[in-house]
Design a protein around this nucleic acid. Structure first.
Lengths: 217, 217
DNA sequence: GACGAATCAGCACATTTGTTCTATAATAAT
DNA sequence: ATTATTATAGAACAAATGTGCTGATTCGTC
């Protein structure tokens, strides 16, 4: 989540690094040595390479020998991950899980999320759009996007996507396994929990790792 | 938010496009014409360029004449934007607004958000971390990140960051200007709205454009 | 002050790469 | 059937770029 400032790089190295960064975000390609030289006030390409080799030793940049503009920033803090929106989650409907073959690129729509905003970057994450107000007690509103990590079981206290076989209902709640029953706790502490005496009726489908709500008008 | 599939590209163009995409995500640089040729089964660079020119006419790719590996994917749906987290928002505290000089890069922490997940990409957006449970009625929980577009006034019905001068309190609510009063509507329809008879007591600080909630355990 | 390491400039050179022009096959249009 | 258009290959060429080497300068350390 947080992006800290650089440690103790000399000004030149720091300049080069940030120039590469801005150049890449602007033009989507890496600068040539000459361009770096011009920008940071170095006279020769060879010296640029000298500086770059220092940065490479620090593990900050890398490139492919002989290939023009192959400069690459390591330590990529923020990379985008496209998560497929599998469908909508609503009470009274089963959760549309992703099929085993990951035909993600064919997905109708995706949510782009910064990898820094995710606990893991496995490619089995998927997203659901919440439909209806039935999950308000979990602080999830109509239209929200929930990002889910599929799993069969979760630790106590985690927000999970749960299938209630008896009620034929899908819901998002905090999961608590107690001695002889399962407690589904709403996020809002003032609301009463749901107790399910027969654990068979509760099927954990996945763990909620993120909720996104947009107000675009 | 949604990324639609390609329209009616011939297989070759489609192959080239997706190769560029995967190549770039893997190596962070663009392929050369020869590499494209080898990948998609074309014999010559000139033909690659021929295909690329078609793609350029469709506005899908572009490059800089004479510059190696300057191939660029247009229609960049997803670019990362780093939004500074200015601090925490809590009832009983004023909202920490960004200073006029945008010393954003010095910010302690930032949230990375995909530009496709934002209604606008101006650089005056900022984020706040919600502290406390006092905004539950707006479906905003302790620890949530709200992204705010600064403004002095909002249309009726928009979720806004509001400073209540009388109560010396900061809050997130749906803003409604009525005939002689202002109505602050909680997100949860079952909760009662707040009415403020004196509009002077209500100061709109900004519009909430996004709410992000993480469950990292 | 001496000495070595780090820092910088200059230049020649090889390679990678894109560009352009021409020619030929395939396909569509008339 | 003929023509125009699109698709493909080939090769020559020029430009962009990285690499390596040599030598000069600065800087810190003893």
């Amino acid at each position: 989540m947080a992006t800290k400032a650089n440690h103790k790089l000399d000004n030149l190295s720091s300049d080069i690094l940030s120039f590469i960064k801005t150049y890449r975000t602007e033009k989507q390609i890496s600068p040539s040595y000459s361009e770096i030289a011009k920008e940071v006030g170095i006279k020769t390409n060879s010296h640029v390479q000298y500086c770059l080799k220092k940065l490479r030793n620090l593990g900050l940049v890398d490139w492919q020998k002989g290939i023009p503009r192959s400069l690459r920033l390591c330590k990529v803090l923020d990379e985008l991950i496209n998560i497929p929106v599998m469908g909508k989650i609503a009470a009274s409907k089963p959760i549309p899980m992703p099929t085993s073959d990951f035909a993600y690129y064919d997905s109708e729509s995706t949510v782009a999320v910064a990898s820094s905003g995710l606990p893991m970057t496995n490619n089995d994450l998927f997203a659901l759009e919440v439909q209806g107000d039935s999950m308000i007690d979990a602080m999830v509103n109509d239209g929200d996007i929930v990002i889910i990590k599929p799993c069969d079981a979760v630790e106590n206290g985690t927000m999970a996507a749960i299938w209630l076989t008896e009620n034929d209902e899908t819901t998002l709640k905090f999961f608590h396994r107690e001695e002889n029953r399962i407690r589904l706790q709403p996020a809002n502490k003032e609301m009463e929990p749901i107790y399910i005496e027969n654990p068979q009726q509760v099927q954990v489908k996945g763990r909620v790792v993120k909720v996104i709500r947009n107000y675009f008008n």
